[in-house]
């Protein structure tokens, strides 16, 4: 499985991950090699085998909808790179 440059660019965009030219080329080679090795999975007969998402069978875990104390607004915002009037400040979403 050889990844093309365009594929890596596309995937990086999906993940919103900026990459330098050098990184792009390096990852393309390394990931192609990794995916080639993972072809081994196609040898396994998985007909009628259900997928496992979680190793321990748990039913949907629900709790009562009750109010309980949470962190203060100031604590939540303490790590914010930019804040304004008690909100997270972001760059303009609409241009």
């Amino acid at each position: 499985m050889k990844l093309s440059r365009e594929e890596v660019v596309h995937i990086a965009l999906l993940a919103r991950l900026g990459l330098s030219e050098e990184e792009l080329e390096k990852f393309r080679g390394q990931l192609s090699n990794i995916l080639e090795n993972f072809e081994v999975l196609q040898q396994v007969d998985t007909t009628d085998v259900p997928p496992t998402a979680y190793p321990i069978p748990l039913e949907n875990v629900l709790r009562k909808d009750e109010a309980s104390p949470s962190l203060a607004q100031s604590e939540i915002l303490a790590n914010a790179p930019r804040e304004e009037e008690g909100c997270f400040r972001v760059k303009a979403v609409l241009e």
């Binding site: 998985t46 997928p51 190793p55």
Partner: peptide, 12 residues
């Protein structure tokens, strides 16, 4: 081909 297949192998 990848994720679902891997999850089935996980079951095995």
């Amino acid at each position: 081909a990848y994720y679902l297949k891997a999850q089935k192998v996980r079951t095995l």
